[in-house]
């Protein structure tokens, strides 16, 4: 099951609700950049969001996170064994979107076999294999968040591997 403990998701958290309804120019408006002056970057600029500190993590107990903004729920998990793409001193920390990339239902974590499971249409994803869809209807694997661990143990998300359900751009 998803852990209900909320953690700091960083500086983008305030960008939610009615602020996001201000349409396409919202991001540039908030950062105060003149739209005409700067050409758009070739790739999405991701925020750096603090998710947790290494000390907050317990093996196989997922932490709820929100990234790249508060409307995009995710999960941060210390697996206890190194996995490809894992970070931290043990190479075992991973983070994913929990919106099923099929129809956007919020998934829950099965700690027994370490999969994310979708109650909408029964898809499931392997958090130990880079979010690979074990079985399901999604046409991509689970968006995995790119993580960085600071010297003080703070864990930051700074990107995503795939498009998050329900948005045309990972950063709205």
């Amino acid at each position: 099951m998803r852990c209900k403990k909320m953690v700091d998701v960083g500086r983008r958290q305030f960008l939610r609700g009615s602020a996001m309804a201000a349409a396409g120019a919202a991001a540039t408006t908030v950062t105060g950049t003149a739209a005409q002056a700067t050409p758009a970057n070739a790739q999405v600029d991701y925020p750096s969001g603090k998710l947790a500190n290494l000390a907050d993590l317990v093996v196989n107990e997922p932490l709820d996170i929100e990234y790249p903004d508060a409307d995009s729920p995710g999960v941060l998990i210390k697996l206890g064994e190194a996995v490809e793409g894992g970070v931290g001193p043990d190479g075992d920390i991973v983070a994913y979107s929990v919106l099923c990339p099929h129809k956007g239902y919020q998934m829950s974590y099965n700690s027994d076999d370490r999969t994310m499971n979708c109650p909408g249409h029964f898809s499931r994803f392997d958090v130990e294999a880079g979010g690979q869809q074990v079985w399901g209807h999604a046409t991509q694997n689970l968006p995995q968040f790119t993580l960085r661990v600071a010297e003080n143990g703070d864990i930051f998300a700074e990107g995503a591997s795939d498009l998050i359900f329900g948005r045309p751009s990972n950063v709205l």
Binding site: M20, G104, G120, Q140, D162, F165, R167, P168
Partner: peptide
């Protein structure tokens, strides 16, 4: 499309 779409919302997957 500037809002996060909910479950079953319109979405173009890659």
């Amino acid at each position: 499309l500037g809002e996060q779409q909910g479950a079953d919302g319109t979405w173009v997957a890659p």
